[in-house]
Amino acid sequence: MKKLLSSLAAVVLIFGMFAPAVFADHHEEAMLRVVHASPDAPAVDVYLNDEAAVEGAEFKAATDYMKVPAGEHTVEIYAAGTKGEQDPVISTNVTVEAGKAYTAAAVDNLENLQLKALEDSMEASEDMAKIRVGHFIPEAPAVDVGPIDGDAVFSGAEFPMVTDYKELEAGTYDLEVRTTDGTQLIDLSGTALEAGNVYSAFAVGTADNPEVILLQDSSAMPSDMPETGFGGTNQTSNALLYAGILGLAAAGAGVFLTRRKSEA
């Protein structure tokens, strides 16, 4: 019996060695992108916790989402190439949560530059498009956004406000950004909004020269990877077979040995 227990212990020990290690948890990350929406600011470098994350972003530039650890980060923005020589134009703290996406937009004229942190939506419904609008044109009046000659979809957005997301039927829209009294500021004819996608439209520039950056925040995606195999060419079944043969052989050898011992 004692022998049996010790053999079992050995088996357990060996199993411990082969047990798959717990997957390293790399989901404690958030996504962050940076938008340069300050019309008179120079190209900038963005430092996250003293490390260069973005170099040489010019007005109207938007970076792709960068993975950052969840938690609080110090964001510093310098005129390009001036870190170490000059003070940052902005230094601020941003807290990000795991699994969420954020946009940090540098807005307003250089002398009043501020960093606006927004949480981005990561999913739209299956057959609708989702869009929000940001008013980042300093000194411009409040605006409406909607179809040309149609009712406003977003109304009364003031600088530096960002609206909530709204769901729209997918399709191509002739949109415009206009002042609340109806004067067109930006013509956005032929804006294609696709089902399952999420967009952010940021009006930037100056009152005399307004423009829109239309960013895509998310797109239609499945919850799981595809099931693309049935195992017909995989060696696992062979491994089972070989292991079975070896195991039987070992058991046979064991029977043979114990029998010889008891005969002796």
Partner: peptide, 24 residues
């Protein structure tokens, strides 16, 4: 004991070789 020892040995070899043979 005569039966158990070989059976355990067989099982052990089976599992050990299965883990080694199948790709991690």
């Amino acid at each position: 004991k005569r039966i158990l020892t070989p059976v355990i040995l067989g099982l052990f070899v089976f599992f050990a070789s299965y883990f080694l043979l199948s790709e991690e």
